[in-house]
Design a protein around this nucleic acid. Structure first.
Ligand SMILES: [Mn+2]
Ligand SMILES: [Mn+2]
Ligand SMILES: [Zn+2]
Ligand SMILES: [Zn+2]
Lengths: 145, 145
DNA sequence: AATAAAATTGCGACAACATTGCAATTATTA
DNA sequence: TAATAATTGCAATGTTGTCGCAATTTTATT
């Protein structure tokens, strides 16, 4: 049986880069978070690693596909990707900030279809939805009355 | 007949904010661009307006739905939205950087469906695809041979 | 286990990006 | 056109991301 940490180390080796304590530390920060984090927040939660190294590492992780980065408002958020988290997207409540993970095969299929219609071989995609959750809708409706 | 500039002024009035030269200038910069721009680039292309005001204005525009902001790499890009541009998304070639605009109703439908499945009333969505365009695929294949 | 070579890190300085309070200016309303 | 309210520029400051280089850590080799 393989732990995530083992797979992570293996992945680094396969790509010919060193397995270091800094990289492990940042990986753990990401592992512990249950939501995408701002890059600065990753640095803050990994005080043993210098900020410059955090950025270099996040760039490496992104290049190796260990992480994905999405935009919210004007801020990039990073979280673990495919090998360490099932592929998913997010829908965020504009009112209360609640974040729900989305998994939907039809959506994935349509994205591939669209790409091929424009003669592209799809490699990556970003999908971020936002709106009002059921709770907030209920509250808002009540207020309006 | 209504020009975009008229509609823009009207939209501001409807929302109870002033129609100013600074706002018009930034709107024109966006109007003239044929691609999403980095926020700093918007400031550079609108030298008559102070950078601080540019940011305040972009925030206002985003709030009123005049613009949309999408993330590329770790950088936010802004462009005009719905009332001033037909709703669309982008697919970008990872190799040559070519940007193609996407319009696809099925995609829009699926997004709404997915949102409602998670009990959200969809208000906004970000979709950005990337991969290899036909040209770059052809070149790459040839090289591999 | 010890060593040499290579890769990564931290440091410190810096540049770019973004935000803020407030006085001066401009837009709106009457 | 005068009074009021909203917006702007300015200038200072915070935040985020980048870079070169010497010190440290990792890896490969013995
Ligand atoms: Mn997907
Ligand atoms: Mn859409
Ligand atoms: Zn909510
Ligand atoms: Zn291409």
């Amino acid at each position: 049986m393989n732990t995530d940490a083992d797979n992570f180390a293996q992945l680094l080796k396969n790509n010919g880069v060193s397995v270091t304590t800094a990289r492990r530390a940042i990986f753990h920060t990401l592992r512990d978070a249950d939501e995408p984090l701002k890059n600065g927040e990753i640095a803050r939660r990994t005080p043993t690693v210098d900020r410059a190294s955090v950025y270099r590492t996040l760039e490496l992780f992104a290049r190796l596909g260990i992480t994905e980065t999405v935009m919210r408002g004007w801020t990039p958020y990073t979280e673990l990707a495919e090998p360490f988290t099932p592929h998913h997207h997010h829908i965020i409540c504009e009112n209360c900030g609640k974040v729900v993970e989305i998994e939907n095969d039809t959506l994935e299929d349509v994205l591939n279809l669209v790409a091929s219609r424009y003669d592209f071989a799809l490699q990556k995609h970003v999908v971020e939805l936002s709106g009002l959750c059921a709770d907030c809708r209920a509250k808002t409706t009540r207020q309006a009355a």
